[in-house]
Computed example of a mutant assay.
Amino acid sequence: MLADKVYDADRTRELIQEQGATPNIPPKGNRRWKPCFSKRLYRERNLIERFFSKLKHFRRIATRYNKLAANFLAMVMVQLASMRLWLRAYEPTA
Rank of each mutant, 00 (worst) to 15 (best):
N30P: 02
N30S: 15
N30W: 03
N30M: 09
R31F: 03
R31E: 01
R31K: 13
R31T: 05
R32M: 05
R32C: 07
W33E: 14
W33H: 13
W33Y: 15
W33D: 13
K34G: 08
P35S: 07
C36W: 00
C36R: 11
C36K: 14
C36E: 05
C36V: 01
F37A: 09
S38M: 14
S38K: 15
S38D: 14
K39G: 05
K39C: 09
K39L: 11
K39W: 04
K39T: 11
K39D: 11
K39S: 02
R40H: 07
R40C: 05
R40S: 13
R40F: 01
L41K: 15
L41W: 11
Y42F: 09
Y42C: 06
Y42I: 07
E44P: 00
E44F: 08
E44T: 05
R45I: 08
R45F: 04
R45V: 09
R45W: 01
R45G: 03
N46F: 07
N46K: 04
N46E: 14
L47C: 03
L47N: 07
L47I: 05
L47P: 03
L47S: 13
I48D: 10
E49H: 09
R50A: 00
R50I: 06
R50V: 10
R50F: 03
R50W: 00
F51K: 08
F51H: 01
F52C: 06
F52L: 10
F52I: 12
S53V: 09
S53R: 08
S53A: 14
S53N: 09
K54T: 02
K54Q: 12
L55I: 08
K56I: 09
K56S: 07
K56D: 07
H57P: 07
F58P: 01
F58D: 00
F58W: 01
R60Q: 04
R60M: 09
R60A: 06
I61Q: 03
A62P: 02
A62K: 02
A62D: 04
T63I: 06
R64I: 06
R64V: 06
R64S: 06
Y65E: 12
Y65N: 10
Y65P: 13
Y65H: 12
Y65D: 10
N66D: 13
N66K: 15
N66G: 04
K67F: 07
K67R: 15
K67Y: 12
K67G: 09
K67N: 13
K67T: 06
K67S: 08
L68V: 10
L68A: 10
L68I: 05
L68S: 15
A70C: 15
N71V: 04
F72C: 10
F72G: 11
F72K: 05
L73E: 01
L73G: 00
L73K: 15
L73S: 08
L73T: 02
A74V: 12
A74Y: 12
M75C: 07
M75L: 08
M75W: 03
M75G: 00
V76T: 10
V76R: 14
V76C: 06
M77H: 08
M77L: 13
V78E: 01
V78F: 00
Q79H: 13
Q79R: 15
